[in-house]
Design a protein around this nucleic acid. Structure first.
Lengths: 235, 235
DNA sequence: ACCTGAACACCGTTCAAGT
DNA sequence: ACCTGAACACCGTTCAAGT
């Protein structure tokens, strides 16, 4: 792997505050935001905190826990953003969009979320959605599948966004350059084998990720509405 | 990171077939299946192929390309499995279940898929789903969002499955031990803050992942059916 | 053209030693 | 109790040298 080794700019000035779990997580978030997942290292982190790599282990068990904690800080902020008295459907859309925007602003959150199944960050999302699903009147036995559908869709889009951001960063191109490249590659696919992919290659550059994301949420919400009124009548 | 260094059992016997991209990918899949993502190294791989780490770089650009190629081999098999003349909805369910089972059997496929957005493995799934969505009669302007919803849901579940498998492997416990641990953790959450999560903690151990997955697909399919008949009438 | 394997520039993590 | 930083056991990748 090729890494550019950015020299430390301000020598090793002494730290003026004591180390703490919170300060470490805050520093980790700053590095993740500016340098991506590959940029976060116990060495870069300890340098920013003006300490040694070993010191961090006094406060945090390992890198996985660090990533999950950083992710949870972002998710907690997002899910606790207070919502005015809206309908359950509107609230679900707002929660989902909130996560979309959070992952857009911090792409590493998408993959951290996936790498910590069943952990607190995911539970926060699960719970917030579930409360709205209940308010929607979805029968008890269907709630788990319903919440799961919404959650997994959000995770899927999030992971995708994280990967886009990651790729764009490592190649030193921005997001639109990346989409441009994918669009070009898709337009060169065999028209017999990949008719649909080819036909949407052009739209790819122009399309609005956020609107597409919401369209997916609405599709699932429409399916949920069907759940409430009809019985299940699948082929 | 703690790694157990399993000694090579059969010394360095000479390779009897020439190296090739296909042989490398095949060996990579075998290692990924048996030792997970962390187990795949240019050193373990070259050892299994009875060569040096550098030799692999003659056939494959880097580890990312290797992972994507291994993923694509699995996805291609899965998407090319011929289906008897079924309805578009039944075909979508079969395709989705096919991917679920493939990721269940090869958990690393889930994360490889997410790490290679817009690449061939994903395009194969996209295209196969899109053709059924078209056959379903979804209007042109809605197709992209519809395909996206299905694809992202599958990716979300897949990523989750991959993470479960990965966690279970690194901790040396099996899947049910892992679910047991999550279930216990969830049942100890604050009932005021996490009522839903607590209430489903018990179900977690007993539930059937595959059925839940399918229920999510059905929810989206129901939403798609609404798309065809009604106009969009969201709040 | 294809392969070898030592070497480079990194990692996460540990731990004896300090304060 | 908390921190230091060298050391350990790895990585992915490169490349001069071989066939």
């Amino acid at each position: 792997m090729v890494k550019k080794s950015l020299k430390k700019s301000h020598a090793t000035r002494r730290r003026e505050e004591a180390l703490s779990r919170d300060r470490i997580i805050e520093a980790a978030i700053a590095i993740l935001d500016s340098s991506g997942e590959d940029g976060l290292t116990f060495r870069t982190l300890s340098e920013r905190l003006a300490t040694g790599p070993g010191a961090i282990y006094w406060h945090i068990a390992n890198k996985s826990e660090l990533l999950t904690a950083a992710c949870d800080a972002i998710v907690a902020r997002t899910m606790n953003a207070p919502l005015v008295g809206a309908t359950p459907e509107a609230t679900i859309r707002a929660l989902a969009l909130g996560m979309f925007d959070a992952i857009d602003a911090h792409p590493w959150v998408g993959s951290a979320l996936t790498r910590a199944p069943g952990q607190l960050p995911m539970v926060r999302i699960l719970e917030a959605i579930a409360q709205q699903v209940r308010a929607l009147g979805v029968p008890d036995q269907e709630q788990w599948a319903t919440v799961g559908a919404l959650l997994n869709y959000i995770l899927g889009v999030g992971g995708q966004n994280a990967a886009n951001g990651q790729l764009a960063r490592t190649r030193g191109v921005d997001r639109s350059d990346f989409l441009e490249a994918v669009s070009t590659a898709w337009s060169q696919l065999d028209p017999d084998q990949y008719p649909f992919t080819r036909s949407v290659a052009g739209q790819l550059r122009a399309h609005d990720d956020r609107m597409d994301f919401l369209a997916g949420i609405d599709l699932i919400l429409r399916g949920i509405r069907g759940l409430r009124t009809d019985r299940i009548d699948l082929v």
